[in-house]
Design a protein around this nucleic acid. Structure first.
Length: 887
RNA sequence: AGGCGCGUAGCUCAGUUGGCUAGAGCGCUACCUUGACACGGUAGAGGUCAGCGGUUCAAUUCCGCUCGCGCCUACCA
């Protein structure tokens, strides 16, 4: 039987995926008595396009899911998307604007219709892209955070928190994005250090005698100042406290206060206080009962409080304020100043700290148990150092601003009454005004109700994902079987955003931890470790990569680069290499299939197994055992590397080559048959072992070898390697390989053409090795291209020969004698001898040290002695050779 | 400012409680189109494990310092 010579992933990837999906290979079955293994997908944004970050998590999670499925678990990988409030609203608004439709003009209801329309058309794009990667999700359970059932979960969670008094509404200083026109949480603010300016501004005293100078980076906010603060123990300013100064430009009278927040070393040691536009000043304002003067509105435009500056943008206002200060001689000086400025994670605009009425979640009581489960190891975070980061952050967590001024999202299920004036979050003593079900009339007075306009932060729904997707708050069959989930696998960049919040929410609402383990993978960067970004032009598109190298190569690359605790530097070169690996497997299979007849049913008869056969069978078991172990520990790189090394370097480089010496020569039919059986068995088992990593090519080859009626490799049982046993065979094969390499080395160094067969003389160091060489002489001859291999050294002096000392024997290769051939031989051997002698001294010194003998463990001493003996044997033999040559 | 982490071959990285003669992939050199595969084969070259000091019989591994780099958190006006 034969398969095409060229390996072409495009020929089979889509076809195979379709087969898997149609035959329901990925469906979990709550009725089965198999043990569950569950991962919920980190839901991609519904607006999202596939990027390498997705490729990363798909690869790792799919490896785990397929591995466990093959191990006999009821694997459930639950897919879905989140509604991505800000992102989606922005995308759809922009699309509408192109058509001349303005969101604010058409109103909330109409706008949401458009968004749903968009979602129906485009929302599944990302899910189809995940399939290209081979993701074995149970698509029948696909969820969306705005689905009816998940929305009900959100309302349930909100109302419960509200009724317990953990949700409050109030006017606080929050992070406001003037471009997205919504509040965002602390976590959604990104700080960049920027070179800015520090402006020194004079605030004249009320009495006209002199002034106090304050330093600020944001001169325009002085319009909202309500005080100037100094440190209470600052001698320079002690007598100023309580006095009034005149606010420049607006000429308001404001007082000088004393507060310990002031850093005497910074600037002039006097600081302007703008309670409505700075988080620090907000706190100070509360402490000192200051006026909160809002000088900027939600669009970043100056308000009426800004006097003549009303209507200017924040940027124009700064310019004008500075000009005017200059005119009035109040601008003392400008210094360069580095400081960090918050930017909106979504749109990149500067964040405006703004006084605003928002909904908050009290977090302390939720955080406490979430800290405990990680501290006591009930939830294991891998790699361990993220555990420390988690605990560090959780220990200093702040209340969470959960309201967003958007339309797309879960509208807050809270109401206020027109008639009696009761309002959820503010004066709703009996907690009647938040409700899971739609409230139609006021439960206090029967009056007309208004529902809160704002929606909840998307993460508020994402935190419920591990259980809302399984049916919570209902006790569904799925929820009962699949919750808690097994592993949460995601990037460390959303440890706080998502993972921490899921732990808090899981414990709060279900009373159980949402998952047993958290594995955090590194971020995918470019080949030099730089973050991928459109501006750097170093973005790699997974769909392009799949097109060029195949999904299997992309997956294998990501997996083998995934070392816990480090970011992944993705170099297309690597993918080329793993595409070559796929090609290698393809061709190895091709070779095997060429050896066997259609429907070959191999049988491995013990009595006909050779050393090499036993070796590769055992080597496979060792590999399988190691791969399982690595996967248990989330060492994807190690698992991938182990398989790679086995298939390429053990199976292809050695066993397949050795098999040729049996299959192409005059050997017993039984031997040939056994070798074929071993070739096939090890290949098939290797394909199974590799399947979670490279699902497509392994499935395709499985079908070609076994035929479709044998089912899917995806559903075969995973090799466990439990038959592996440590055996002297390993060392014996090592020694034979060492001999073959030594002969090949001489061939290469002496420039003997590969086509030329040579004569080799051998002087084994042990009878056992001589016996072994004799037993495997045919394989050795074939692999080293030896015509004649003799143990009768005779007198080689007159002949031309090259020699080498390998681990178990002295090797002589007959060559044509040339002029200074003895000289060259001597140089070569002397070089090797020098190297050996250096090592010899090292080991000798160690062993001669009395405290080494005293303190080192016996095993180590023994090993050292063995190595020394080996070195001494080898160098002794080389010395002898050199001596013989000179005489 | 606080916390975490990194510096091993030209490049990207492994190296599991200290103990083999420090490994891999790519790149490089030489030779080879041999009937699975040139997306290949064979053989090589290449490292004072950032530097200094300490603990130890023994340090790439543990500790301290120095230099260089990265990330996260934070209210430096």
């Amino acid at each position: 039987m034969e398969i095409p010579k060229s390996f072409e992933p495009k020929d089979y990837e889509d076809r195979i995926y379709k087969m898997w999906e149609e035959k329901g290979c990925f469906k979990a079955d709550p009725k089965s008595d198999k043990k569950p293994y569950v991962i919920v997908i980190p839901p991609p944004n519904v607006t999202g396009a596939l990027h390498v970050g997705h490729a990363m998590f798909v690869t790792l999670q799919d490896i785990l899911i397929r591995w466990k499925r093959m191990q006999g678990y009821d694997s459930l990988w639950l897919p879905g998307t989140d509604h991505a409030g800000i992102a989606t609203q922005m995308v759809v608004s922009k699309e509408l604007e192109k058509k001349g439709i303005k969101r604010t003009e058409i109103g909330r209801e109409k706008f949401l219709e458009y968004v749903w329309q968009w979602k129906r058309e485009k929302g599944d794009t990302i899910l189809h892209q995940l399939r290209k990667l081979g993701a074995s999700c149970d698509w029948s359970r696909t969820k969306f955070t705005l689905d009816d059932d998940l929305s009900k979960a959100v309302r349930t969670a909100f109302v419960r928190l509200y009724n317990e008094g953990l949700i409050y509404k109030g006017e606080y200083l929050i992070n406001w994005c003037v471009s997205c026109e919504t509040a965002i949480s602390d976590l959604e603010v990104e700080h960049f250090e920027k070179e800015g300016k520090l402006y020194y501004i004079k605030y004249p005293f009320e009495d006209g005698n002199g002034e106090v100078v304050v330093a600020t980076t944001r001169p325009e906010t002085l319009l909202g100042d309500s005080a100037v603060a100094v440190h209470p123990e600052d001698e320079r300013y002690k007598n100023l406290v309580g006095k009034n100064v005149i606010l420049p430009l607006l000429k308001r009278k404001i007082k000088v206060i004393a507060d310990e927040m002031v850093d005497r070393e910074f600037g002039t040691g006097a600081v302007k206080i703008t309670p409505a536009h700075d988080p620090n000043d907000f706190e100070a304002g509360k402490r000192h009962n200051l006026e909160f003067i809002k000088v900027m509105n939600e669009k970043g435009i100056m308000t009426g409080n800004a006097g003549i500056y009303q209507g200017l943008s924040r940027y124009e206002c700064r310019k004008k304020v500075l000009e005017d200060l200059e005119d009035e001689g109040l601008l003392l000086k400008i210094e360069k100043h580095k400081h960090s400025i918050g930017h909106c994670q979504r749109c990149g605009n500067m964040i405006e700290p703004m006084l605003s009425k928002q909904w908050f979640l009290k977090i302390d009581s939720l955080a406490k148990p979430a800290i405990e489960v990680v501290e006591n190891g009930e939830i294991e975070i891998i790699p361990d150092h993220w555990r420390k980061v988690y605990l560090n952050w959780m220990g200093d967590i702040h209340d969470w601003c959960i309201s967003r001024q958007l339309w797309w999202g879960h509208r807050i299920p809270a109401y206020s009454c027109n008639s009696c004036g009761k309002s959820a979050g503010e004066n709703d003593p009996e907690k009647k005004l938040a409700s899971i079900d739609n409230l139609t009339s006021c439960p206090y007075c029967g009056g007309v109700l208004n529902q809160e306009e704002d929606v909840l932060d998307t993460w508020f729904s994402s935190q419920l994902w591990p259980f809302s997707t399984l049916g919570w708050p209902e006790e569904t069959e799925d929820f009962k079987k699949y919750y808690p989930t097994s592993v949460m696998e995601t990037g460390y960049d959303i440890l706080f955003f998502w993972v921490a919040r899921m732990i808090m929410a899981g414990l709060k609402f279900t009373g159980k931890k949402p998952f047993h383990k958290v594995f955090l993978h590194g971020l995918v960067r470019d080949k030099h470790g730089k973050k991928m970004s459109k501006t750097s032009g170093n973005v790699l598109d997974p769909l392009d990569l799949i097109d060029k190298y195949g999904a299997d190569a992309l997956r294998f690359t990501l997996s083998i680069l995934c070392v816990p605790g480090t970011d992944v530097n993705l170099d297309p070169k690597r993918m080329e290499g793993y595409k070559a690996f796929a090609n290698k497997i393809w061709n190895a299979s091709r070779f095997v299939l060429m050896q066997v007849e259609e429907g070959f049913e191999g049988e491995i008869k013990e009595e006909y197994l050779s050393l090499w056969d036993r070796w590769i069978l055992n080597e496979f078991e060792k590999t399988a055992k190691s791969v399982n172990q690595s996967l248990e520990e989330f060492k994807f790189y190690e698992a991938s590397h182990t398989i790679y090394h086995f298939l390429w370097h053990s199976y292809c480089d050695w066993y397949v080559e050795v098999s040729k010496s049996v299959l192409t020569q005059d050997e017993l039919e039984e031997r040939k048959s056994v070798v074929k059986s071993v070739l096939v068995k090890v290949l098939i088992d290797s394909l199974k072992l590799l399947h979670p990593f490279m699902p497509y090519i392994t499935e395709e080859l499985w079908q070609k070898i076994k035929g479709e009626k044998m089912g899917f490799i995806a559903l075969q049982s995973y090799p466990q390697g439990d038959k592996y046993e440590s055996s002297p065979i390993e060392e014996e094969i090592d020694d034979i390989c060492d001999l073959i390499t030594a002969i090949r080395n001489i061939r290469a160094e002496k420039g003997i053409a590969p086509s030329e067969k040579i004569t080799v003389f051998l002087e084994p160091f042990s009878e056992n090795f001589e016996k072994m060489v004799k037993e495997n002489i045919s394989e050795i001859k074939m692999l080293a291209k030896v015509e004649e291999l003799s143990f009768e050294i005779g007198n080689l002096k007159d002949e031309g020969f090259a020699s080498s000392v390998c681990k178990m024997a002295k090797v002589f290769v007959l060559i044509r004698k040339d002029e200074n051939h003895h000289q060259k031989e001597k140089e070569r051997l002397s070089l090797e001898l020098a190297k050996l002698q250096k090592d010899r001294v090292k080991f000798l010194n160690k062993l001669n040290n009395p405290s080494f003998a005293e303190r080192a463990p016996e095993e180590v001493i023994k090993r050292h002695k063995e190595i020394l003996a080996e070195i001494e044997l080898k160098s002794g033999e080389i010395e002898k050779l050199l001596k013989e040559m000179t005489t």
